[in-house]
Amino acid sequence: MSGAEGPLLVLVGPPASGKTTVGRAVAAALGVDFRDTDRDVELETGSSVPDLFVEHGEAHFRDLERRAVARGLAEHDGVLALGGGAVTAPETRALLVAHGSRGGVVVWLDVDLPSAARRVGLSRDRPLLAVNPRAMLRSMLEQRAPLYAEVSTHTVATSDRSTDDVVADVLALVSGATR
């Protein structure tokens, strides 16, 4: 496989869109490694994402996230899943657009509000959704949709669809890309 440097596939999307679940399944199907930038931040700091938000604030976490995404895009050659808010950083968007323009596949896993709310529930692992999760999720989906659209080379809807169907769609996109 030649062409695009960096990850074979980058997944972006809001919380509960299926980035980790789909990413792990796609990576397994392709026989490549899966990497999650939120997990990278946790490994680097020894703290969970929710704890980082509480103890150091969102700005501190976003700085760590920007660096984790840049490292992942530079070092990883498998499937890379980004945290839902990673696209809010202009530097990250520029890196993702550049990756796509070099032939990289950046898939926006899109989810509607009812599906996302059902999947998230009252999760304490999602710090920005701690207070009034449905309203915060609606706001996130609306504010970030243009950012996901800006950085993605493809969009796959995940609402009310089985993981297997979403994985099949993503695999078709990856296999159709020239690398």
Rank of each mutant, 00 (worst) to 15 (best):
M1W: 12
S2R: 09
S2Y: 10
G3S: 11
P7S: 04
L11I: 01
G13M: 05
P15R: 09
G18L: 07
G18A: 05
T20M: 04
T20C: 06
G23E: 00
R24V: 09
A27T: 00
A29V: 05
L30N: 02
D38Q: 14
E42R: 15
L43V: 11
S48T: 15
P50H: 08
P50T: 07
D51F: 15
F53I: 01
F53M: 10
E55I: 09
E55A: 15
H56Q: 09
F61M: 07
R62N: 04
A70V: 08
A70S: 14
R71I: 00
E75W: 13
D77F: 08
D77K: 08
V79K: 00
V79W: 08
A81I: 06
G85F: 15
V87L: 13
P90H: 09
R93A: 11
L95T: 02
G100F: 05
G104T: 00
V105N: 07
V107G: 07
D110M: 12
A116L: 02
A117C: 01
R118C: 03
R119T: 01
G121F: 13
L122R: 12
L122E: 11
D125P: 07
D125I: 06
L128D: 09
A130M: 14
V131K: 06
N132W: 09
R138Y: 02
E142Q: 12
E142N: 08
R144Q: 06
A145S: 08
P146V: 09
S152M: 08
T153H: 02
T158L: 10
S159L: 11
D160F: 15
S162H: 07
D164I: 07
D164H: 11
D165C: 12
V170T: 01
L171D: 00
L171I: 02
L171K: 03
A172T: 07
A172N: 04
L173F: 13
G176H: 06
G176P: 11
R179S: 05
